[in-house]
Nucleic acid binder design. Structure first.
Lengths: 223, 223
DNA sequence: CATGGATTGTAACATATGTTACAAACAGGC
DNA sequence: GCCTGTTTGTAACATATGTTACAATCCATG
């Protein structure tokens, strides 16, 4: 197997190594080495190929108006760069991609990758799964941020937990994690929860929450 | 042509009507009629088929904890329901889907739709384009909301306009539209712009903005 | 049971944004 | 030019959230 790491990639999951190897005989690909600090893609550059991190690691960085850089995310093997964007109309890299350490990328042109999808239904199915799951995730996050008060976010969050209908739920993370998920600070979240308790909407005992006023709670998850 | 509206759908764009007709001979599909007010899908229900609105219109609605409903969006022909989600892992409808008026939906199972993609590269290419473009859009919106101050959003917005590098840009929408795009109120946006002018970051003349302090501006688009 | 680290609760103050209202500047049609 | 509706600028006040700091509680471990 040429690239054993591929079998752990969601794009090639469920495909035996021999089959992967055979598939790669049908297309053109190349492996490119990026020394530490080198640039694999610039923000705004058109996305024309699928690039899978084989070794090392890359980071996505934005450059602001003054030329300073902000790290957005790290990309480890066997993840791919902007996989969910590649076939979008005029898709461009949203960030600069830089090698954190000496790294190798497997590069397959969009056309060749599409050829793989046509040839093997498993490749097609895997890719559809990856990109749809990404869209689902993004959509969920976006819906979440559309509640702009902390109480609204918390009320909506409660409603998504198992047992919400029964009026009693168990929160599955710490306030710290929850506050990061909401994009707010931890004390602000604690205060909001306290106020909701004062207002008689819920009663809280650490991780355990009883929903006392469903109508009132739902009123919060509007704005 | 059985469903002339399909040729206007992004999923079947660029495919001559005869070819579409021929494709549909290879798969199982059905057209289902939904009288006004009837429910086509419930939030949380698994997404197993592609559903394209042929006539009438549908709306996506959320039900809150108290059973009240909030309209999220309208879906007109030839749009599809949750097209970008269908192949996601355990994909479920995020909203209830209700018929605004007497409507018809074309229903194709996920498997059959995938069969169409395998059979015709144009169908594949169209779908990939649709779902990737959706992911791009969602990702862009999300990045935008991650700037939590209005000044940060505005600074970032300025940096995306053509001519930002030259230090002079022309805003292409009204403050009202911009404030909705940012998810803030119009007076708050105007105030933020005014303050940025006072601080010497920019100088504004109606739609025309000169970027005077790139370093300062970039400092805003961090948090 | 004692201890220390993690988690949660709470407070005072600063700041950003929303809300509401109105005035000023612009743009297009008569 | 003169209106009228739209867009932009500005103000006073209310509210939500961030910031910082510290206390109280929980929980695992010795």
């Amino acid at each position: 197997m040429k690239f054993p790491v591929l079998s752990r990639s969601p794009l090639f999951t469920g495909i035996p190594d021999d089959d992967i190897e055979r598939l790669f005989e049908c297309i053109i690909y190349r492996v490119r080495f990026y020394p530490e600090g080198s640039v694999a893609a610039l923000a705004g550059e058109e996305i024309v190929s699928l690039q899978i991190v084989l070794s090392g690691s890359m980071r996505g960085e934005m450059t602001d108006l003054a030329g300073r850089t902000i790290k957005i995310e790290d990309i480890f093997p066997p993840q791919a760069l902007a996989a969910a964007f590649i076939f979008g109309a005029g898709a461009r890299y949203p960030v600069n991609v830089i090698a954190n350490s000496d790294s190798e990328l497997l590069i397959i042109s969009g056309n060749d990758y599409m050829a793989l999808m046509k040839r093997d239904p498993r490749v097609l199915s895997n890719y559809l799964n990856v990109v749809c799951t990404k869209a689902l995730f993004l959509s969920g996050r976006l819906r979440f941020l559309s509640f702009h008060t902390i109480k609204g976010k918390f009320a909506h969050y409660l409603s998504t937990l198992p047992g919400a209908a029964s009026g009693k739920v168990l929160i599955d993370r710490t306030q710290q994690e929850l506050s990061e998920f909401f994009g707010v600070t931890r004390p602000s979240l604690a205060r909001a929860i306290g106020e909701m308790e004062d207002e008689g909407l819920i009663s809280v005992n650490r991780r355990e929450v009883r929903l006392k006023d469903l109508k009132g709670l739902s009123g919060l998850s509007q704005a």
